[in-house]
Design a protein around this nucleic acid. Structure first.
Lengths: 217, 217
DNA sequence: ATTATTTTTTAGGCTAATCTAAACTTTTAT
DNA sequence: ATAAAAGTTTAGATTAGCCTAAAAAATAAT
């Protein structure tokens, strides 16, 4: 059984490692957790002792398969709760993250299965991120950010990065929700800003914004 | 802001003091919290310093009005979550306590108001206990336990004490739910066991059980 | 290839919540 | 009214998670 803090560290490691595909450095982790490197080292040792990660001094950490499934369960809970907050309680998608950060640590297998059922077994959360199933299986979507594409591209918004509430508010304002069709009308070479078509509206977006929009097709 | 542990101690003090109407002794509190008296003393000092309780050495603690409203908010959350678990997720009433103990510590004013709305502003939880409103107002029902009454009494089950899951399972089995009519057919002087009529069924119950059934009228 | 810089780890301390054992108060019993 | 018992508090340790400062290792720069 992991403590709340251990769970948060493990989740951060999982995300920073892109789902376990690369190793994570102590400083990266410390920054993500808003702590100091010394604290991260302490926690790394603890998680390594419990075999959720593997760790070679000075060379960073890797998530074990045990760690992966544990992290995926936390992510499952987080995303199911986010879905609940938006679908059932009428939260806007920029409000949910903080609360879901708390709810994801509630420990009850039965609760999460019942919640999943209540929500109708959703496949993605309100930001378009896939929800791992009860076995921890997750559908990794091809993650291309909009900024990597050229004028003329058209496709669908698959997801948006859910880090910052202000960004989410802005994306909501311009109609950039998962599922919406999007087309790049033009791209400025100088700063990589672009004009896009969303819901028949022409919008100018900066590179900073286009980096946070994930598209498919 | 209270820590999770402080919140739990305060809630226990509130309950042990019958909503603030009597003082609570250190040992009582320690037992309720499954800790030792020394730990209870430490926490009592902390809560007293923060003015949630008043405390005179060796003579027990009393909840302040600040403490009362804080405790009532925790109880509000607990009972709303219990209602959610039963009404929306299909939990049985004997399963909810443990999970609600965790959920009651989620910190989000908005969440609890939205949840209340989603549930249709319920007045009582699945055990029949009143739910404090958003201002902390609670409707104290006349709390008479069945064991204090005599043969011939008839009335309605107002609530059941929700301490023990096994007791709740048993009460469910004999049909003793809040709202159900109940009549005392006979009472045995020797051990105060009684025969009662619930839903047209005659049931023998021990004093231990009748002490956990609260009736009204 | 040595030195300088950056990164990481270790050492030692702090706070919250717990414990045991000892000291102190209050209550009960003779 | 004093001694015994019960209850409470204090003193001193422990663990988890965090910190700063110093030491050690890896990387970069001359």
């Amino acid at each position: 059984m992991l403590s709340l803090t251990e769970e948060n560290y493990l989740k951060a490691i999982y995300h920073l490692s892109d789902g376990g595909s690369k190793s994570v450095l102590t400083n990266e982790l410390a920054e993500a957790m808003n702590t100091k490197a010394a604290s991260a080292t302490d926690m790394i040792k603890k998680l390594a002792a419990k075999e959720f990660i593997s760790y070679e001094k000075y060379y960073g950490v890797n998530v074990t398969s045990k760690g992966k499934s544990e992290a995926l369960m936390v992510i499952r809970k987080h995303r199911l709760w986010e879905t609940f907050l938006v679908e059932k309680l009428g939260f806007t998608w920029d409000e949910v993250h903080e609360v879901a950060e708390q709810l994801e640590h509630i420990n009850s297998h039965r609760l999460i299965e019942k919640l999943d059922e209540f929500l109708g077994y959703p496949k993605v959360d309100p930001h378009g991120d896939p929800i791992p199933d009860s076995k921890g299986k997750i559908k990794l979507q091809p993650q291309i950010t909009l900024d990597q594409l050229k004028a003329g591209y058209h496709g669908k918004i698959a997801a948006v990065k859910d880090s910052d509430s202000n960004l989410l508010k802005y994306l909501d304002k311009i109609g950039a929700k998962p599922g919406t069709k999007i087309k790049i009308l033009g791209k400025e070479d100088y700063d990589e800003s672009m004009e896009v078509l969303i819901n028949d509206h022409r919008v100018f977006i900066s590179k900073e914004v286009s980096q946070n929009i994930l598209v498919s097709e």
